[in-house]
């Protein structure tokens, strides 16, 4: 495989890892140790999750690197499609009709 940055210290990975941990603990802290309403907590930790996912795309997933940006784009669209199907689909199915009662 390519060796363009193999020998240097993976500083971006370490930063990404630390920031991921911080965001995760922040979410856990807000969920466990604050008295905010349930809805507010869900919105905050949901936003933190999106921020973390976006950050990881750049820190770990090499989104900016490589010659095949088109492939990356297809992958991203596919991933978004899967997320919508799984998350939105599940919520829709489980909260409509008799299932919710």
């Amino acid at each position: 495989m390519e060796h363009h940055q193999s020998k240097s210290f993976p500083i971006s990975h370490v930063i990404g890892f630390v920031v991921s941990l911080l965001l995760t603990f922040a979410a856990a802290g807000i969920a466990l140790y604050t008295n905010l309403s349930f809805k507010v907590i869900m919105w905050i930790i949901g936003s933190l999750a999106v921020v973390q996912a976006g950050m990881q795309l750049f820190m770990f997933m090499h989104l900016r690197e490589g010659e095949d940006g088109k492939t990356n784009l297809v992958n991203m669209i596919y991933a978004v499609f899967m997320v919508i199907v799984i998350v939105v689909g599940s919520i829709w199915v489980l909260t409509s009709g008799h299932a919710a009662h």
């Binding site: 199907v85 199915v93 409509s96 009709g97 008799h98």
Partner: peptide, 16 residues
């Protein structure tokens, strides 16, 4: 996008 057809009888709404 077809998985619910395994449990129609769960009673999701008519739209689902």
């Amino acid at each position: 996008v077809v998985w619910v057809h395994h449990f129609y009888t769960m009673g999701s709404g008519p739209a689902v």
